[in-house]
Design a protein around this nucleic acid. Structure first.
Lengths: 220, 220
DNA sequence: ACCTGAACACCGTTCAAGT
DNA sequence: ACCTGAACACCGTTCAAGT
């Protein structure tokens, strides 16, 4: 039996590891073939053997994130409760990569974990009384809302650079603080919550509840 | 009375016009100082007199879009019905710029039309029984969901390039068509709706109904 | 099959200088 | 105040060539 010596110098999976790390820290725009090539001691052009173009690399990042979704086992709870848990599992995986959550959207109906999630969501929605085509529309919208819940997470933003985060908060406080309480009484009195929600868990709880409540309400 | 001759060669408002046109056609990434400078017969550096940096220019685009929001007059309908109309007005303005809708988010609590929208939304939410801090959280989430509704509008995408759009649809059809109906019975049977919703108006109607139904449901 | 070298056509932004 | 010129430090991607 011959153990094949690994002859390839470049491991695409490790390139995606690096890309994911850069994107988490500095955002997807900071990911570049040239930087990745330098990190892996190859020419930028070497990457084109493994990724068609930059979009292809970003798609691989999306797939990586989706691979972390851990679907809950079906049980005998009500469809809406199970849907809540299913969507929570999706959000949990995305929360690890707040700046990258939207890379999953174009991969959901392509990557296997995304397909499993979608199929299960459609099962629960049809169980809840939706026609399959309506379930598709509602499910898509739910996924989109939850992705944007994560991408716009006000607490996670710029977490890599705490002083940039502080500066951004200070700017927001200053701008809302300058508003006239007569013209904008509710905005000024809700300024705290508008600038940054008190608790991150509560932020996600409200977001998920809102999505599931919408689905429940639409069916009626 | 002296009519001041306009001495400035560069009108920042016209630069934003051009930037908006480019961004609508080719996406925000295609907007560049160099391209805009060429279009306005100046050096790229001339733009830095009028815009701090590229982010500042994109913020101006966000403000432009928000300026098109036409708020409905308050009336004596129920709070949730009025909220539906308010949010519809927001979505209507965004729909004119599907690829740019998310540039409005960071400008909502800064640009005047965004503040007016936010204040009115908070009014209706508190009228509906939300505490002001909860209203803030719920309102933010609603705005985010609706922005993502527009940015991911499956019908508007790549509308500038109809054959790219066709190619993308074909790719999606092929990829869903290759799935096993045994493993993914619901996805395959909903393939049509998943690839592209039948009607654009219905797409937006469902999206808006879902958001308002969620808010109504959360209050209870 | 996998990688390199050189080149093309772009970017945002800084700095010093002109009027 | 407003604009220019030259430069710096980047990009993605193509093409032809090497092993």
């Amino acid at each position: 039996m011959i153990i094949k010596e690994t002859s390839r110098r470049l491991d695409p999976e490790k390139v995606v590891d690096s890309a994911l790390a850069i994107a988490d820290d500095e955002g997807p725009a900071a990911v570049s073939f040239r930087k990745l090539a330098a990190q892996h001691d190859v020419t930028p052009m070497a990457l084109y053997r493994h990724f068609k173009d930059k979009d292809d690399l970003l798609a691989a990042i999306g797939d990586r994130i989706l691979a972390d979704v851990v679907l809950p086992e079906p049980n005998d709870e009500r469809w809406d409760k199970q849907l809540h848990k299913l969507l929570t599992a999706f959000v949990t995986a995305l929360r690890a990569h707040p700046r990258l959550a939207d890379m999953t959207l174009p991969r959901i109906l392509i990557a296997e974990p995304g397909l499993a999630l979608a199929e299960r969501a459609l099962e629960l929605l049809t169980e809840g009384g939706f026609a399959v085509d309506d379930a598709a529309e509602v499910g898509r919208q739910a996924i989109c809302s939850l992705i944007s819940l994560v991408t716009t997470d006000p607490i996670a933003r710029e977490v890599s650079d705490p002083e940039a985060r502080e500066a951004s908060l200070r700017r927001k406080r200053a701008s809302l603080g300058a508003l006239s309480p007569d013209r904008y009484p509710l905005i000024t009195s809700a300024a705290g919550a508008l600038i940054c929600p008190e608790s991150r868990d509560r932020y996600y709880e409200i977001g998920l509840d809102l999505v599931v409540a919408g689905i429940r309400g639409l069916r009626a």
